[in-house]
Deep mutational scan, measured.
Amino acid sequence: TEKQERAIEYIRRLGYSEEEARRILKKANGNPDLAKEIARRIG
Rank of each mutant, 00 (worst) to 15 (best):
E9L: 11
N31P: 00
K26A: 13
G43L: 15
E37W: 10
S17K: 04
L34H: 06
G43S: 15
I38Q: 04
K36P: 01
E5M: 11
E9P: 01
E2V: 12
I42N: 15
E19P: 08
R22V: 08
I24S: 01
G15N: 03
E18P: 06
R6E: 15
A28F: 03
N29V: 05
A7E: 03
E19Q: 12
I38H: 04
A35Q: 01
I8H: 03
E9F: 07
L25T: 01
A21V: 05
Y16C: 04
N31S: 06
A28D: 00
R40V: 12
T1Q: 11
P32I: 11
I8D: 02
E18Y: 10
I8A: 03
Q4A: 12
N31D: 15
I38A: 04
P32R: 02
A35V: 03
E20Q: 13
K27A: 14
E19W: 12
Y10C: 06
E5H: 09
G15C: 02
E2W: 06
E2S: 12
K27F: 14
N29D: 10
A35N: 01
G43K: 15
K3I: 13
I11K: 00
I24R: 00
E9I: 10
G15T: 00
N31H: 07
K36H: 04
A35S: 03
T1N: 12
Y10P: 01
R6P: 06
R40E: 15
G30C: 07
E20F: 13
R13D: 13
E37S: 09
I24T: 02
R41C: 13
E2M: 10
R41I: 12
I38V: 06
N31M: 05
E2F: 06
R40A: 11
L34W: 07
E5W: 09
L25G: 00
K3Q: 15
L14G: 01
T1R: 10
R40L: 15
I24M: 07
S17A: 05
E20S: 09
A28K: 01
A21F: 01
R22L: 10
L14S: 02
K36N: 04
A28M: 03
R41A: 14
T1S: 12
E37M: 08
K26W: 12
I24P: 00
R22P: 00
E19D: 13
G30E: 04
L14E: 02
P32N: 03
A28P: 01
T1L: 12
G15Q: 02
E2I: 12
E18N: 07
E5D: 11
I38T: 04
K3S: 14
G15P: 00
A21H: 00
G30F: 10
A7G: 03
G15V: 01
A28G: 03
E20C: 13
A28R: 01
I11P: 00
R6A: 15
A35H: 01
N31C: 05
G15R: 01
E37F: 07
L25K: 00
R12Y: 05
L14V: 03
Y10R: 02
R12N: 04
A21P: 00
R12S: 05
I11V: 03
L34Q: 06
R22G: 04
I11S: 00
R23K: 12
R40G: 08
K36A: 07
G30S: 05
E9T: 08
K3E: 15
A7Q: 02
I42K: 08
D33Q: 12
A39P: 02
K27T: 13
K26F: 10
L25M: 13
K36T: 06
S17F: 02
A39W: 02
R12C: 05
G30T: 03
A21Q: 01
R23L: 14
I8W: 05
E19G: 10
G30V: 02
N29M: 10
A7N: 02
K26Q: 12
R6T: 09
I38M: 09
E19I: 11
A28N: 02
Y16I: 07
L14Q: 04
A28Q: 02
A39L: 04
I24K: 00
K3Y: 11
R13P: 00
L34N: 04
I42S: 13
E37Y: 08
N31I: 06
R13G: 15
N29I: 04
L14W: 05
G43E: 14
A7C: 07
K36F: 07
R22K: 09
I11Y: 02
I8M: 07
L25I: 06
I42R: 06
L14F: 06
E2L: 11
R12L: 12
A28C: 05
K26Y: 10
I38E: 05
A7T: 10
R12D: 00
Y16T: 01
N29F: 09
R40S: 09
A35L: 03
I38W: 05
L14I: 06
L25V: 04
E37P: 00
D33N: 09
A21D: 00
L25D: 00
Q4E: 11
I8Q: 03
Y16P: 00
R22D: 05
Q4V: 13
Q4F: 07
K26M: 12
Q4M: 10
N31V: 05
G43I: 15
R6H: 12
E2H: 11
R41T: 14
G30M: 09
E18C: 08
N29A: 09
L34S: 04
E20D: 12
K26I: 12
E5N: 10
E5I: 11
L34F: 06
A28E: 01
K3P: 13
I11C: 02
R22M: 09
A28Y: 03
L25C: 04
G43M: 15
K27M: 15
R22W: 13
K27I: 15
E18L: 12
E18F: 08
I24V: 05
L25F: 06
D33V: 09
S17M: 04
D33H: 08
N29W: 07
K27V: 14
R22N: 08
E19S: 11
R13N: 14
A35E: 02
A39Q: 02
N31G: 02
R23H: 13
L25Y: 04
E37H: 09
T1A: 11
Y10L: 05
P32D: 05
G43W: 15
N29H: 13
N31Y: 04
